[in-house]
């Protein structure tokens, strides 16, 4: 296994009943890169993420992460291996403060050590520090004591990414971080992701083409559960097949 790749899948697939959401995907994510997965709605991008992070058990194929076979490892155990994700549909602890959302996300790294019920929750200083560090990085310090549910949609999307960041991952998987965000907020997210790309390997699902083209090192295009092509932003931009896939999609509407 080539050590310049952090994640490798081979003929990875996921069926929902008779329907194949992910067909046979061979994917390699280079260490330190920002690797984006694009494709029309229903292409299977989120389903692919579910397999990678363990939310769903793949129907076929394998996943190697850091050279280790994680194919059937439970989702919560992949965090300690260095994988952490955000969700396309915002998934926060709505009634808890922004700081507590982040602290709990950081606490997730402790695994079963978080079962300690005889010490204060702030006893693990590393988690408190992590929450503060991420709070600063995602620039939500001002809102630290607000309930997550009270934030604007854009801020909630940023917190969504921040929570993934609290897992101290080596691979950060972001599922449409800009989903539902207003045009004015998108540059904030673009800036944040490219900044995170400096010290993380990032796997990104995104529909916003300007964002994708400006920050991706590598792009994989998915269509109907399989990889259409993979290449640099320039290669993907000029590809006829890709245009057809997207046009085909809008042709149905």
């Amino acid at each position: 296994m080539n050590s310049s790749y952090l994640l490798e899948t081979s003929s990875l697939g996921l069926d929902y009943g008779a329907f194949s959401a992910v067909g046979n995907v061979d994917l390699k994510i280079r260490k330190g890169s920002i690797h984006t997965v694009i494709g029309p709605n229903g292409a299977g991008k989120t389903s692919l993420f579910h397999c990678l992070t363990g939310e769903r058990k793949p129907t076929r194929g394998s996943i190697h992460f850091n050279g280790e076979n994680l194919t059937s490892l439970a989702a919560h155990k992949r965090v300690s291996k260095g994988m952490s994700r955000s969700f396309q549909i915002t998934s926060l602890f709505q009634n808890l403060s922004v700081r507590e959302n982040l602290r709990i996300a950081a606490q997730g790294r402790d695994g079963l050590n978080a079962l300690k019920f005889w010490v204060p929750e702030t006893a693990n200083k590393a988690n408190v520090a992590k929450a503060d560090e991420v709070l600063e990085r995602i620039k939500l310090e001002k809102y630290a004591d607000r309930q997550a549910g009270e934030l604007s949609h854009g801020q909630q999307r940023v917190l969504e990414v921040g929570m993934a960041l609290c897992g101290s991952p080596s691979l950060l998987l972001l599922d449409e971080p800009t989903s539902g965000m207003g045009v004015d907020d998108i540059p904030i997210m673009t800036g944040l992701i490219s900044e995170l790309g400096k010290d993380h390997t990032v796997m990104l699902i995104e529909h916003n083409m300007r964002l994708v083209m400006s920050i991706s090192d590598r792009i994989t295009v998915m269509h109907q559960g399989n990889i259409l092509i993979e290449g640099s932003p320039e290669e993907v931009k000029g590809d006829e097949q890709v245009k057809k896939a997207y046009l085909g999609e809008s042709g149905h509407e």
Binding site: T53, E55, A74, A75, H76, K77, V79, S80, S84, R85, F87, S91, L92, F93, Q94, N95, L96, I104, A105, Q107, G108, R109, D110, G111, L112, A114, M163, C166, G167
Partner: peptide
């Protein structure tokens, strides 16, 4: 956290 959002709790690492 589990009460608030069990899916996210397991995604951040809790069994």
């Amino acid at each position: 956290a589990i009460r608030e959002n069990e899916g996210r709790s397991s995604a951040v690492g809790f069994s």
